[in-house]
Design a protein around this nucleic acid. Structure first.
Lengths: 235, 235
DNA sequence: CGAGGAATTTGCGCTGGATCAAACTTCTCC
DNA sequence: GGAGAAGTTTGATCCAGCGCAAATTCCTCG
């Protein structure tokens, strides 16, 4: 067992859940947290498993997927630096509702469920922040639901890329790069279609010079053109 | 203007958000709440509107719908007695994310956003309850997302009915009745399909004696057979 | 740098379910 | 109780995109 990684309140300033709180609260949270490096490809927790820890990501990227009894799965969301994951079951039935897997080497903080709960009881602002975070995700899920029910696959793929751009876009020489390793299957699992269909559209856009992929990373050269595709009225 | 409806802490005991709290908190919440009867068909609030009140339903039924810029809409959920609605924006951007319309004559309580926020600040358990409620809805939304992306229309319609049965089922003489007025279009807007497709399946099931509809109400005679349809492995 | 494997592209046929259209039934309200 | 409106059923047609399969390219790692 390696020596525990020291945690200071500074590290917590980047976690959205705690960002706007008084420093004293962050120190309290820091004292209870455990830091841990996560190698790429690690299954952080499994769907249905009893929630052993509540998590926050400091760096890297975690993929949250949900699968049904039939094995079909969707990609619920990517967790980027500063975001929390696996925290809701602490307050509900105690079972993780999805799988979590690191996509790159990452660093996380985590809390014992009881500690986090106690912390939220002492500091209502913490719980209120959490409602805001979960509420925002609920809104996003409902928007995706509407898109999936009413829009064409092409628009959904375009919107998926735009949304990822928002979440993890980073300017580079010739466009904006999505900072997650992203393969066609991932895009398909978010947009609710197949990797074949995604490939057709993306390859087309790539030919038009609208975007490029290298090393499993997507670089959008022209977000505006993509936005046009995403908004186009019919189907 | 009619005289205000008197509110006592007893009424709040049926509201899930406040149910498990000390009586003193419920009394505090009661003092700040406003009760209001809502006639059938009333638009309680509009998507995009600034959140003027946070709501809880005491009796009746409210339909929450979300529509996109193109006019396409989905039915996000039904709110039944004891459930809250329009409360999340109090803690986020202050804009209602969806429309809310009463489906029958109803009775609601509502709070001023600032009052509810202050109440949650004083009583962290209230905020914690809210995380649990919103988290549960998030889980449901993600499950629907997966179903919509991976399952056949028939299964989705069957599951939709089963889910409504769970939420608002009431035993009657010859089966379990869903306590909301429900037309084909509503089912379609939840299941993510068209009223024609819903009609085909439901009419078939009705012929098999699996369920019945009268006065825009669905009565499931054989939940088990429906469950089989919902679980059936392929597509 | 090169071999092996993983991911992507692309062609083709097929079908679930959307769309269009029309008859029919059920509710609502006078 | 009856007229009109609203909701439902059912048929016919059509196509977006899924499933399968094979070729090709890209990435990884020794």
């Amino acid at each position: 067992m390696a020596a525990p990684i020291p945690i200071d309140a500074e590290m917590l300033a980047d976690v959205a859940l705690l960002a706007a709180l008084p420093r004293a609260v962050r120190e309290e949270a820091a004292a209870l947290a455990r830091a841990r490096p996560l190698p790429r490809g690690l299954r952080v927790f499994d769907q249905g498993e009893r929630a052993g820890r509540a998590h926050a990501l400091l760096s890297g990227c975690v993929r949250i997927t949900q699968s049904g009894s039939d094995g079909e799965e969707i990609l619920v969301r990517f967790i980027g630096p500063g975001e929390i994951f696996g925290c809701v079951p602490v307050l509900t039935d105690g079972l993780y509702p999805a799988d979590a897997t690191t996509m790159v080497d990452s660093l996380e903080l985590s809390w014992d469920p009881a500690d986090l709960l106690a912390l939220m009881e002492r500091h209502s602002q913490l719980a209120i922040n959490m409602v805001a975070i979960v509420g925002k995700r609920l809104g996003e899920a409902q928007e995706r639901l509407r898109e999936l029910a009413t829009q064409s696959a092409e628009r959904r793929v375009a919107r998926t890329l735009l949304r990822l751009l928002d979440q993890a876009g980073r300017r580079t020489g010739d466009g904006v790069r999505i900072d997650f390793p992203l393969r066609r299957k991932d895009i398909a699992d978010i947009a609710g279609t197949t990797l074949h269909t995604v490939s057709r559209f993306v390859a087309g856009w790539e030919r038009q010079g609208l975007l490029a992929t290298r090393h499993h990373h997507v670089i959008i050269r022209s977000p505006d053109e993509l936005r046009v595709l995403a908004e186009e009225s019919p189907g």
